[in-house]
Design a protein around this nucleic acid. Structure first.
Lengths: 203, 203, 203, 203
DNA sequence: CTATAATCGAGACGGTACGTCTCGTCTTTAC
DNA sequence: GTAAAGACGAGACGTACCGTCTCGATTATAG
């Protein structure tokens, strides 16, 4: 997939930064976002994005291979901003805050709809699944792991904990409720954190 | 949605009140199933189903409102057969077996792919979400609740347990791993059951 | 190419004339004709024809392989109506009238523009050239030959005449003037007929 | 249109007033020519010419307004070289040779294809028609008229002859056969010359 | 034992969006 | 100021499916 444009990344000093319109890039991302919120995933079409962004279709195809790649770009920018790993002294407390943010993100934020839509699309298209994992899930998981690893290092969490299993045990129920449109009360998250972090695993 | 066909319900001995070709119905369900497995969700089209089933498009539209309705019909038939609620004397043991079956179903069975695809599609289309909940998730949840309620009644499980929360805490991580294409080892399920059923909640 | 629809040809008695919309067919032909006159050949697009005819693009592609095939259909219908071979007792007189009609057709009639456009397009596309010859030029040439052959049979024209050469010697200059946008006065045609039919060839 | 480039006119010794790359100009003309021969008129695109000539698109647009202007430039150079007006003592004999050359040019030479293509394109685009007439047809016609006028002056041809009509009567049939892909045997041209030049018109 | 009526396979129809192609313009960097 | 490079807005291309519609043909009750 695309999105990782070579040019933007090396900043303004580059000696030949002479192409790709940043204005067009942003117009496309915003148009895609808006359309998803207003009309749902089925209402997001390349044609529609182009029209609303005031951009030629070819400009979209030049930089993104598909509409999901565009949505993935918007998700990554939004999640980086709205779902930072909290830096608290207690790993348990960090996790609690993080997963509460995630609940709010998934159920309240427009960007949360993007994430659910991408998970949905990943079920239909292995290429989407691959890129979604690679560009969103994996990097985020690395940061989440670190959060818990800090707790293990400080002795706050048992050293016998299986970090990935614990993260899935936290992430899974929250996502499941979001996917099925159920509500996610604060105490549901609290209970998950208590059960999965505050005590050593039984086996 | 459809699926609730008038004729099938009163069984095969029926005095054949009127019409509907059972052959066509089965051909459609099988064609849809096959196409999903062979070509993925995007490869399932009404046109393709009709062609492969040797059936007219109109025949499909007469009985199903959309391709997801067809897939939902196949899922319900398959899940009823392959995901029964175990009838063991211990609720914990029933749950363990049930969620192990679910893991296998989601990761190994073709019908599991159908379920993941429908959850995916539900993220894009509220009507699909509604019907999926109504015709699949809710009835199944009723049976699952009963399974745990039996354990509470017998004293095996704490009476303070929040049954829906516990079911989501079990279901969620399994589904999450299936949705992200991760492996689901037996011991992952065992740990979930242990943590969420064998001990009272902390709060 | 298309146009020669199997259904229309065998008349009203046909036992299963249950498809292809004559209304759509006519709407397409008229839309194409109108666009050519209003906006020139470059202004004729399948998309434009479909929009103006109130017809789906696919309906056009179902029955015609290209826009020139559509124009050829309109030309054939128009030429059959407006350029009949005159049935006079004198072949010379018939030819004179016929080529005067042709001059008027090419310089004044909308359908004449269609013919010039097709000759033009035939220079760019061998397939167009082939079909244009096959479906328009050749049948018409057969009728024209007959017209002169009658004159030879009756003794009005020399039996040494090379009929195809004579027809080209008449047709060519008229078409050349039409192609270059020159005027074609009646006396230019008269002179051509006199020179090429009223006297025996020199060699 | 273009083609009348400022620099070329004062020859190769030129003190090189400023810019314009002669190499680029030739590369463009040759690329256009080659593409027309290899892929037909539809295969000639500005983009394709630029790519094959190793030239930027903008360089083409700077000097030519359209692809037909490029082709017209190649035609003019080629026709000047390959279709000179013969300088024989007899106007009839000059005409015979000239129109035989024309036949060969149109049916055998690549440049003849260019001419047919331009006549074709002139049917679609009035601007092309205008420039083609102005830069190719009219100058050439002036020379052709002179050829016959010499014959009239010397008494070889009747003074009653309508020179333009005669030239069209010669040109037209040859072009018509070329346009329709028919063969043009030498004796067809001979007969045309005999009929239209060696004897006085009937009316 | 019809005849009536819903079903069926077939496929044309008006549409929408796809992803590709080329257009002619514009902008950047190098010479 | 010209050139190579190539991104940009624009819009037509031909294809794939959508969901609706008509068309005989088939078939099983209901009269």
């Amino acid at each position: 997939m695309a999105g990782a444009d070579p040019e933007r990344s090396h900043g303004p000093k580059g000696r030949a930064p002479h192409r790709r319109s940043e204005a067009a890039r942003l117009a496309v991302l915003h148009a895609a976002d808006d359309l998803l919120v207003e009309r749902g995933f089925g209402g997001v079409t390349i044609e529609g994005i182009a029209a609303r962004a005031g951009v030629a279709k070819q400009t979209i195809y030049r930089w993104w291979p598909s509409k999901t790649a565009i949505l993935l770009d918007t998700l990554i920018e939004d999640a980086d901003r709205e779902l930072p790993i909290p830096q608290s002294s207690s790993a348990t407390e960090s996790a609690r805050r993080y997963f509460l943010s995630l609940s709010r993100f998934l159920t309240k934020e427009p960007a949360g709809k993007v994430m659910l839509a991408l998970i949905g699309e990943a079920q239909h298209d292995p290429e989407v699944a691959r890129t979604f994992r690679q560009r969103y899930l994996d990097p985020r998981r690395r940061a989440e792991r670190e959060m818990l690893a800090d707790g293990v290092a400080s002795g706050e969490l048992s050293s016998e904990i299986d970090i990935d299993a614990a993260l899935d045990a936290l992430q899974g129920p929250i996502l499941y409720r979001a996917l099925t449109g159920a509500r996610i009360p604060r105490r549901f998250v609290d209970a998950l954190v208590d059960r999965n972090l505050t005590r050593a695993p039984a086996r």
